[in-house]
Design a protein around this nucleic acid. Sequence first.
DNA 1: ACCTGAACACCGTTCAAGT
DNA 2: ACCTGAACACCGTTCAAGT
Lengths: 202, 202
Amino acid sequence: MEAPTPSRGGRPARLSREAVVGAARAIIERDGVEALTMRNVARELGSSPMAIYRHVRDKDDLLVGVLDCLAADVPRPRFSNAPRERVLQACRAMHDGLAEHDWVVDVLAQGDLIARTILWVTEVIVAGLIDCGLSERQAADGYRAIWQFTVGELMIRRGLRRTAALGRTPFVVEVLTSVDAQEFPALARVAPQWAAARERDS
Amino acid sequence: MEAPTPSRGGRPARLSREAVVGAARAIIERDGVEALTMRNVARELGSSPMAIYRHVRDKDDLLVGVLDCLAADVPRPRFSNAPRERVLQACRAMHDGLAEHDWVVDVLAQGDLIARTILWVTEVIVAGLIDCGLSERQAADGYRAIWQFTVGELMIRRGLRRTAALGRTPFVVEVLTSVDAQEFPALARVAPQWAAARERDS
DNA sequence: ACCTGAACACCGTTCAAGT
DNA sequence: ACCTGAACACCGTTCAAGT
């Protein structure tokens, strides 16, 4: 999984999976996910596009690599003694870790992925829920709900960021605030509330 | 917005926005979103790729068109008298309407979008929440939470479907069930629970 | 063993020209 | 006014060849 082979003889490797993933991450953080192309990674490394395929199976594999090395950077908080508080801390760590790089939802949308390097968060959450008195089944369901909520939040936040980056007022806000009071009285009443888009955890 | 112009003289139109959107929808439902290319739409209509741009601004605009005509098909349930029940009915309508075409999360991930033809669902939910005694602010927040939860569910479901379509067991399930009991005791305990992936509403 | 160059089969979109 | 053809600037990836 790390080096392609123990490298017995032959031409010495100039690239490595680590280097390729690193270059990909640099590109994403500098120019956004949409700038991540195999050809750009190659340019970043000063090599031909095809050299990359020696160290990474395909673009998806590369993306998982970046995801994994990102997850490794999520800071591990000093956990409280109270189980309930511990769960919240872990949720916050997960949420903040992901929110920092909101492009991950693009990857998440692609397929079901999980970074092994972040399993400790899952462990803390599930353990905390059990310590709160939940059954194993309830804990599993609880984790699923938390994950679902988090993914939803990331996705919405990303959409809003995108249009914000374009300098336009979000399409959703525009539609919801300019609603016809005759047709949609309740929506018209709450219209002023939408602008106050705050951020919260689970 | 509908026809490009009232069409005063000149060459008669063979295509229309309606036809283009219809072809796009047919392609998506037959072959999946990844098959939706401008060139494929053109082929479906027996025209040149560029003819399409006369009726649709760009690919995003086309996608919004499909989304809108899909939303128009969401059936409107006979609503209960109890406000709480009404909210649940509307949530279910929204969820089921979206779940039927799970590719919409791809579009949602692209940017913040909303189909005007489905605002009635939003109206019912917000009105119902207010009737339940929530303040306008609470109702707005409540709707946001429901939407977030729904989007998260769709996204996860889509990821699982994708890998299921490939015939593989989901990556997430694989990782979570093969976890090291030493390192992650709580995860090992709940491991048997993950397989039972059921479906629920908010 | 590792890397390169040329090539394949695609994209979305612009632009000038036809009818 | 509507449509077409050719072209541009891209993609990810395969394959045969170089070192």
